[in-house]
Simulated assay, not measured.
Amino acid sequence: MTTERRPVLFLLRQGAVMLAVLTMQMSTMGADQAVKAPDKPIVLFDGKSLDGWKKTEFFRAGVVQVVDGVIVMAPGRAMTGITTSRQDLPTTNYELSYEAKRITGSDFFAAATFPVGKSFVTLVNGGWGGNVTGISSLNGSDASENETNKFVKYENKTWYKFRVRVTDQTIACQVDDKEIIHLDYRGLQLGTRIETRPNQPLGFATYESTGALRNIEIRPLTTAEVKAANKSDQ
């Protein structure tokens, strides 16, 4: 009787071991999926206050206030803006997204200055009299003079959605989900114009225009997103 039970016990024990191994594999797969899932965006504007922001110290800047859930930057002589007061934001492998509109004026209304590793650049939207959208500066050349120079027509009192992705190799910029810039910046000297340096490390500025901002968020890119962004320029 004892001899007959041994195979049964052996099979039961073997089955238990296999079940334990399978359970561990499933747990590992779940952990891997959790790591690869996109992190939740960091909300940088709560729609109620300027918490996390300070008025940029531009000369003769206009008023900055929250009106009806929107940050409104009144015209300055010549610039008005906001700069983050946070110290915990990523500097590479991230996505910055925001919505902006020009209420009055004819120049840039939400030029975004952001970090690229240890450097900074500015995405100018509608600069030089409303004709230029591009990155300042590359090898000392402004957006109006370098390869990122694009024409995007902006209508006043119209919201536009902007998305900026930064990796250790590339900068990509979208307007209303259309990519207008995809730059491999390796080998280039990056830097902001002296006028927008007060917006570092992250901020927005208007030029002789009234600009509005909402839905400002930033999030880390997934490994797959970083690889896709870098691969597109190889």
Results as ranks from 00 to 15, higher is better:
111 A>G: 15
171 I>Q: 07
84 T>C: 06
154 Y>G: 15
201 P>F: 05
8 V>H: 11
195 E>C: 00
91 T>L: 00
34 A>L: 12
24 M>R: 01
179 E>W: 14
50 L>H: 07
93 N>R: 06
15 G>A: 10
116 V>A: 09
199 N>Y: 05
58 F>T: 11
41 P>Q: 01
142 D>H: 14
103 I>S: 14
234 Q>V: 12
227 K>Y: 00
153 K>V: 13
134 G>K: 01
176 D>K: 04
29 M>P: 02
53 W>T: 11
75 P>W: 02
188 L>E: 04
157 K>V: 13
19 L>F: 02
89 L>I: 07
67 V>Y: 06
33 Q>N: 07
196 T>H: 13
208 E>L: 15
116 V>T: 15
156 N>R: 05
98 Y>L: 12
76 G>Q: 00
97 S>D: 12
226 V>C: 03
130 G>L: 07
45 F>I: 10
109 F>Q: 07
116 V>K: 03
98 Y>M: 06
129 G>E: 08
196 T>M: 10
52 G>T: 03
233 D>Y: 01
210 T>M: 08
94 Y>I: 08
58 F>E: 07
189 Q>V: 15
74 A>G: 00
175 V>L: 11
11 L>V: 13
45 F>D: 08
229 A>Y: 04
120 F>W: 09
93 N>G: 01
60 R>D: 09
127 G>H: 13
62 G>Y: 11
80 T>A: 07
168 D>Y: 00
138 L>C: 09
203 G>F: 02
163 R>N: 11
143 A>L: 02
198 P>M: 03
57 E>P: 02
68 D>A: 15
30 G>L: 05
3 T>Q: 15
29 M>I: 07
77 R>P: 01
119 S>W: 00
188 L>G: 10
130 G>R: 08
69 G>N: 04
86 R>D: 10
87 Q>D: 13
228 A>G: 04
32 D>K: 02
213 L>A: 13
29 M>R: 05
214 R>V: 13
47 G>E: 02
28 T>I: 03
192 T>D: 14
32 D>T: 07
22 L>Q: 03
141 S>I: 04
144 S>D: 13
225 E>H: 10
167 T>G: 04
56 T>R: 05
232 S>L: 12
94 Y>G: 04
46 D>T: 08
40 K>Y: 08
185 Y>M: 10
222 T>D: 13
81 G>N: 09
35 V>M: 12
80 T>M: 08
220 P>G: 02
227 K>W: 02
76 G>C: 07
39 D>V: 14
127 G>F: 14
79 M>S: 10
217 E>C: 10
121 V>T: 14
77 R>S: 14
21 V>L: 04
152 V>I: 14
45 F>H: 11
93 N>E: 14
